[in-house]
Simulated assay, not measured.
Amino acid sequence: MLNVKSLYAVGPVETKAMDTTQLRDNFHVSGLFEAGCINLTYTHYDRMIVGGVVPDGKDLVLDEVKEAGTASILDRREMGILNIGEPALVSAGGESHTLGRGDILYLGMGAGPITFGGNGRFYLVSTPAHRALPSRLVSLKDAASLYLGSAETANERTIYMFIHPEVMESCQLVMGYTMFHGGSVWNTMPAHLHDRRMEAYLYFDLSEDNRVFHFMGQPQETRHIVMKNEEAVVSPPWSIHCGAGTGSYTFCWAMGGDNVDYKDVDPVAMEDLR
């Protein structure tokens, strides 16, 4: 079963007036992972699509998505697929790929319908593309890594880059995930902005009784959204995006927009946060 909803772009002025429910309606994505379903959210931020696929032992085929405006979803798009479940199979473009837990598969424009099988839990991100590039499966050992933070500031973490210029070529999609070292819970702090591209986060590996407080908004007008395990949040280009958990977790980040330079950010000083 295919389910699609849309999130329309809103600016900082409108966001200032939103209450908790309105913030969640406009930026929070829940219910991604449902057995036997493909659940997609089409965002109007750089036309990014985020979604969850749970084959539950049967094949699920993702092909036409009306919101994408093409006969098949990848006719004018590229896609990254992260498996956070058991090893499972994804097939597209006449090729089959076995994704272990933590692997990310890149599918290029024109790869055709996508078949998800087995007992995987697949998180997908898709952005518009301007040319066809080879599909590629990237495992954790093949990813580029960046160590940041410290135990003293509770943000000691390693960033793993999969769909990234240091690893492979894409049109505009950049995707990877961040894993924390023991006792660290803060992500992306100090905060920053990148007006040239938007970002989406998926929080996972979070125990049922823990939460992540995701911070967003302009630096002088911050807001927060409380996140459960396997929930996503959309971050507009004008917004900061950082968070702190009540326990350990991992988060997948994905970006689309004007460039693929991961370090193209505008830092926000602590004294400027309100």
Rank of each mutant, 00 (worst) to 15 (best):
S135H: 02
M168L: 15
S150A: 08
P128Y: 00
L60F: 10
E230C: 05
G257I: 07
R131M: 00
T158W: 10
D142K: 07
G69P: 02
H97S: 12
A111S: 00
G36P: 04
A191I: 01
A17Q: 13
G176K: 00
T21I: 14
I38S: 06
P165Y: 03
T127L: 06
G149H: 12
S145G: 12
F116N: 02
N229K: 06
V65P: 05
Y123G: 06
S150D: 12
V90G: 14
V167W: 14
N119F: 10
L60D: 08
P55R: 01
L40F: 06
C242A: 02
V61E: 03
D264V: 03
E230D: 03
V138T: 05
I240C: 00
G69R: 00
N187G: 13
I49K: 03
L82F: 13
A129S: 00
H192C: 08
V268E: 05
T250G: 03
R121N: 05
L74A: 00
V61H: 04
D25G: 07
E221T: 11
W253V: 10
F33A: 04
L105P: 11
P134W: 09
G31P: 01
I225L: 08
S135Y: 03
E271A: 13
E271R: 15
R157D: 06
D46R: 07
H194Q: 09
G149V: 13
F215R: 08
D264W: 03
F116M: 09
R76Y: 00
H214F: 03
G183E: 02
A143L: 04
M1K: 13
L60Y: 05
E156Q: 15
E64V: 11
G245V: 05
